[in-house]
């Protein structure tokens, strides 16, 4: 058996109970990421991609129940006592979020917020030393005049700068794994590219495993090593990034790729996938994607699709177009 990956999720399930009814937000996702690797998780809003990752770290909302497995460095996170989870969070596993303005505490200086992360996990570090380190970290994410900037408040930073602060805070304790939840969605396109560069650069320098959660498959094209496509709480396709773009096996993935705007081609209209993701309480039978799938057959309405795989390339579709050698 090969060595266990840095972070491995197996059949993770998250459900919410509301008004006595149970909603399955995550219906058994499995994925893994290793040191120095970038795993992209792509899916529409509400597909369960964020809540799945949050739940793996014990950050799910109070009403959620989580089952399955999420192993980090060989340790099981699901069901781990809170104190041990807290010791990992912000130290070995860091997270950054979508909106860098609301993700920073408006009444604390950015330096104090970074220093807090350091001191939470390093009991012996003085406030002074932590602030000095905070300035170094701001320099690491290319914020000019870090010694002055650490004493400023989040509202004095631009959107892109705030996201850099979030990143600085995330890597403050040299984590092994960084989970970035839509890190560029709230930013301008030009700033998006800068932030992605900062992230991939840090990945190389600190050899971190990076999980990049996004709804924008285009962002992943240049930055991810592997991609997992999530639909209605399930991974419908998972593959090496080149293979995924070259030979998408699942109709949903094909739809996502087709809807990326392409500058080279001139099209009258942008492609879009018909319909909307099903609401959590009303998942269709069989394949969850069948009501929107252009290739749906009778079998799709009744039988949940098996996962077919060809090496690293997996797809959950009755008609997955995997290259030769595919086996059920």
């Amino acid at each position: 058996m090969q060595q266990e990956p840095l972070f491995a999720v197996r059949d993770l399930r998250v459900s919410f109970t509301r008004h006595g009814q149970s909603f399955k937000a995550v219906r058994g996702i499995s994925l893994h990421v290793d040191h120095g690797e970038v795993l992209g998780i792509v899916g529409e809003s509400g597909s369960g991609k964020s809540v799945g990752m949050l739940s793996a770290l014990g950050l799910q909302p109070k009403t959620a129940s989580v089952s399955g497995s999420a192993r980090f460095n060989g340790r099981e996170l699901v069901g781990m006592p809170m104190a041990q989870l807290r010791a990992l969070r912000g130290s070995r596993i860091a997270m950054i979020f979508q909106d860098p303005l609301s993700s920073l505490n408006p009444v604390m200086t950015v330096g104090a917020q970074i220093a807090e992360t350091i001191r939470l996990h390093n009991a012996g570090v003085s406030k002074r030393a932590a602030m000095d380190r905070a300035a170094e970290l701001l320099a690491l994410v290319a914020i000019p005049q870090p010694d002055r900037r650490i004493h400023q408040f989040p509202h004095e930073f631009s959107g892109g700068m705030r996201q850099r602060v979030m990143i600085a805070m995330a890597v403050a304790n040299d984590p092994d794994l960084l989970i970035a939840d839509e890190p560029t969605t709230a930013l301008d396109v030009t700033v998006q590219a800068q932030i992605m560069d900062v992230l991939t650069d840090l990945r190389r320098r600190l050899n971190l495993g990076l999980i990049l959660i996004t709804h924008d498959l285009g962002v992943l094209a240049g930055h991810a090593d592997r991609v997992a496509v999530v639909y209605s709480g399930e991974v419908v396709e998972q593959a090496n990034v080149d293979a995924l773009f070259a030979r998408p096996a699942h109709p949903y993935t094909r739809g996502l790729i087709a809807s990326i705007p392409n500058m080279a081609e001139e099209k009258e209209r942008l492609f879009s996938i018909d319909g909307a993701p099903p609401p959590l309480g009303k998942l269709p039978g069989g394949c969850a994607f069948h009501p929107r799938c252009p290739q749906a057959q009778d079998i799709c309405r009744h039988v949940p699709p098996p996962v077919r795989s060809n090496g690293d390339h997996r797809a959950a579709c009755h008609f997955a177009t995997l290259p030769v050698g595919s086996a059920a």
Binding site: L59, R86, R89, G90, S91, F97, D99, S102, S103, L120
Partner: peptide, 14 residues
């Protein structure tokens, strides 16, 4: 319910 509370928890704050 604000996001920075999630950030604080993600930092490992009690």
């Amino acid at each position: 319910d604000r996001e920075f509370i999630l950030t604080a928890r993600a930092k490992g704050a009690g």
